[in-house]
Amino acid sequence: MESNRPRYCLGLLIMFMVVFSLGIERTANDYILAIVSFTGINIILAVSLNVTNGFAGLFSLGHPAFMAIGGYTTALLTFSMEKKPLFLPDLPQWLIPVHLPFFPALLVGGCFAALVAQIVGISVLRLKGHYLAVATMGFLIIVQVLLNNANSITRGPLGLNGLEEFTNVSWVAGWVVVTIYTCWKIKFSSLGRSMLAVKEDSMAANSLGVDLFYTRNFALTVGAFFAGVAGGLWGHLITAVTPGSFSLIMSFNIIVMVVVGGTGSITGSVTAAIIFTLAIECFRPLEENFGIYGVGEIVISLVLILILIFKPSGMFGTGEPKFVTGKYKQLSPTNGK
């Protein structure tokens, strides 16, 4: 690296997160805290999908599926032992005594999602473009159907509820930092450059010795791990998980954040995630005072279309803005195809 600026930025980010989360947890009310936590979870989701979609160019619609896997796994692992017989009477014998504290449960959830991503990757990653989009969408729907029907473990469409409210702003802030740091490191490692090369021109990358399959699978797996963790955080924030929550609509929302921020730009994903989560809340008073529900969505989609018209490659393009990278030159072309 030519500049130390990214390191300073990371330091600043960590300091900011510590001060911010400690400060806000003392001062703000529950509503603000919930919005802040969801913003953080959306940042994790957008940044991690950016590894899959932005770096490696895999058009995946399956992100919520990994969230669901992580969310259900974490929820089952932390489910309170007293409530289990009452809430989940049909739980398989071997699952009854299994119990973990929150942090290890999150990790297990993330790893399980990553493991599933490996298996899925083996089968669908040879597909390209829109074909991959349909295949990952199919994967999402299959996961939803299985969750809907595995009554003894997931309670079907009702989902699991009564989870402990473990997630708070500090937990989310911590994971946001970890996600941004990891994805940043990946982007500027040789592996990250291979990913960008695969995205730009897979044949050329292959002829230069990049293992296409390994690179793509890695990108999918990293994305899935963080999606799984985000699912765990999500479940323990609203204290319930149902199959219906992890829907195609959620997948669209995350993709919108990635594209508006700039496919491939971590700064962009973070900014877009913040703007979109807050914008929806900002429209609530207007909708509630005038009884015109849905106006927020209409205005936001209009703004989205305007952004795409005037800045089709997103707010930050593929790169990171100068104030984060310093004089360091972008290796990737600023406008990917």
């Binding site: 979609n53 058009f59 473009g129 993709i255 919108v256 594209v259 508006v260 496919t263 989205l304 279309i305 795409l308 018209i309 089709p312 490659s313 990917g336 195809k337």
Partner: peptide
């Protein structure tokens, strides 16, 4: 613009 832009729009 990239194809995904039209999709999002």
């Amino acid at each position: 613009a990239p194809q995904v832009t039209g999709f999002i729009a």
